[in-house]
Design a binder for these strands. Structure first.
Lengths: 181, 181
DNA sequence: TCAATTTAGACAACACGCTGTCGAGTAATC
DNA sequence: GATTACTCGACAGCGTGTTGTCTAAATTGA
């Protein structure tokens, strides 16, 4: 018999959804497989037919969110197009806004540090390109400077997505530009 | 009957030490009470005579480390003394260096986000005093700017303490000053 | 002073929940 | 009628927090 992708994908999606509702409330470590399957309306064993453990489910969601941003950075921003830093940030922020429901949780209080790290790695080439070439620094100093800007930018995204009624992107960009230049 | 503080403090210290060895290797959530007491050479139940759970032990260590910095900021820096920002940072960095073995773990890959938050709150008045008065910004914008600088400074401390052979404090301060001014 | 009493400190055993993994079973689908 | 998607019940293993017990030392009083 043929597989029925639409069925299995529905199950995956239900499990993801149930997990996500729980993840908005508490950190991963406190989420049990039983809670997820109870909420999604499946048997506990069914979970193990799809995921090895809870962390693999989290990773799947993170990869979905990061995939969009990564594709943007690699295909549009770094290849040919010559844009200002502000324009790059604007595009990234627009993406963060599009998947705001996800990013605000992943960057939030119970958020995953690994997600921040992966996001940093994706933005890293931008920082290298726009802030580091000017200065003549040894490798150790470059690491420090890179970390400063990456963490600052990430903190802005985090604070911005956490706001109840966030300010317009353009205003945020202006603010950021005042600080880094 | 009087307690025997030297006995009980020795036990506390042994438990702390055992926990710390484990914490350098993996995140808190993966550290069990059994592991701690096995390593320290006590019965598992003994742990519960001293701490409610593993998090309370972690909190005790964090408070020890943060107590020093907090005292410095409150008593010396914010009262009368009029110092440059660079001088404040210098003092804080010297403290971070003194308890480097602790800070590098607490800020490290398995580190506790709550520790970062507490450290941010302590440094926060400094950022408010030196970076925010100049600008005319609404409260929402101030939150964003504050987060940017706090996260940036914290990232620098983190990157600096993580280095195998960290650069001199003065050089780090110079670097930071170039970025924020 | 020294035996009786009290208590701090350490321990073993318990009940209970969650995990990951079985093998067997059912209902629907093609 | 074979295959798919899922359920069910059982299992050992590890984790938690609590209970009651033992020992040795500190305190008390005749």
């Amino acid at each position: 018999m043929r597989k029925q992708p639409q069925v299995t994908e529905q199950t995956r999606s239900n499990l993801r959804q149930a997990f996500w509702e729980l993840y908005a409330e508490k950190p991963v470590e406190k989420i049990s497989v039983r809670e997820i399957t109870d909420r999604a309306g499946y048997n506990r064993a069914t979970f193990y037919l799809y995921y090895h453990d809870v962390y693999e489910l989290l990773d799947e969601i993170e990869s979905m969110v990061l995939g969009n941003i990564e594709r943007l950075v690699n295909e549009r921003l770094l290849k040919g197009e010559k844009l200002e830093f502000s324009q790059h940030m604007s595009l990234i922020l627009r993406l963060a806004q599009r998947s705001r429901d996800y990013t605000r949780v992943l960057l939030g209080p119970h958020g995953d540090p690994a997600f921040s790290d992966r996001l940093k790695e994706i933005i890293s080439p931008l920082v290298d390109r726009f802030f580091l070439p000017e200065a003549e620094l040894d490798e150790q100093a470059r690491r420090v400077v890179r970390e400063f800007y990456l963490s600052g930018i990430l903190a802005i995204i985090r604070a911005w997505t956490a706001e109840e009624s966030p300010m317009p992107i353009d205003q945020l960009i202006t603010l950021l530009m005042q600080m880094v230049l």
